[in-house]
């Protein structure tokens, strides 16, 4: 009787089959396999446990694991679909699929709405919008007086809040985003078109000794 040896490929916990992920997303099987390479690189940067932690996500975006950024935090929280504090491989692929050039504009509009709906309440309030503008100013070199910030928020609400109830709901957001397509510019990553040809960056951690 012969023995058959089946080569077992070791995958990180939370790994999902590439065929399933390709079926559910805009990626092909080969593209999902390429994304696994990228996922492996990021998830072994600091914690080496096969999950992407917040610090690892921040490091690849800013080359600094300690830099906190309001909007990077929002993106991380949405990628972390299960809400368990880490991004698993399946969550990584499903979330990146939203940014694929072939994904419909409607899906991108919905995802962008979820980024800006800070309280997950199903609408964007004036105070939330102001909070986001202030967060943006905080991370940039742009300084605007409080009056100017109020004016910007007021004018945006005038354009987007069609029923004047002081809330931007998903339908109003959809209308507004369609009239202002530049808002969705960062919702499409051209890199994802040629992902099987890509050589992913080698992220290198610089550990600094803090006294």
């Amino acid at each position: 009787m012969g023995c058959a040896f089946v080569k077992q490929v070791k995958h990180a916990p939370g790994y999902e089959e590439s065929t399933l992920l390709a079926y559910e997303t805009a990626f092909t099987i080969k593209e999902v396999e390429s994304l696994y390479e990228l996922f492996e690189k990021i998830s072994h940067l600091i914690f080496n446990d096969g999950f992407i932690h917040r610090e690892e996500f921040q490091f690849v975006l800013f080359k600094d694991s300690n830099k906190r950024n309001f909007f990077a935090d929002r993106i991380f929280d949405l990628f972390d679909i299960k809400g368990n504090g880490v991004i698993e491989f399946g969550e990584f692929v499903r979330s990146l699929s939203i940014f694929h050039p072939y994904t419909s504009q409607d899906e991108k509009i919905t995802f962008a709405f979820r980024i800006y709906d800070l309280k997950n309440a199903g609408f964007i309030e004036r105070e939330e919008l102001k909070e986001m503008v202030l967060a943006l100013l905080n991370e940039s070199d742009l300084f605007l007086t409080d009056d100017v910030v109020e004016t910007i928020v007021d004018q945006t609400f005038k354009q987007a809040d069609l029923n004047c109830d002081e809330k931007i709901d998903p339908m109003e957001w959809k209308e507004f985003a369609k009239k202002n397509p530049s808002l969705l510019k960062n919702m499409t990553l051209p890199y994802l078109m040629d992902i099987t040809m890509a050589e992913f960056p080698n992220f290198v951690m610089n550990f600094e000794v803090v006294d």
Binding site: F71, I75, M132, V133, N186, Y191
Partner: peptide, 26 residues
């Protein structure tokens, strides 16, 4: 465009934290 005429979402969308291209840039 004067800042006071800017659309708040357009301003927000310039955040580096919303630019996932860095995941792929060498």
């Amino acid at each position: 465009e004067r800042p006071s005429q800017m659309n708040a979402f357009e301003l927000i969308s310039t955040s580096q934290g919303l630019n996932l291209g860095s995941l792929f840039e060498k």
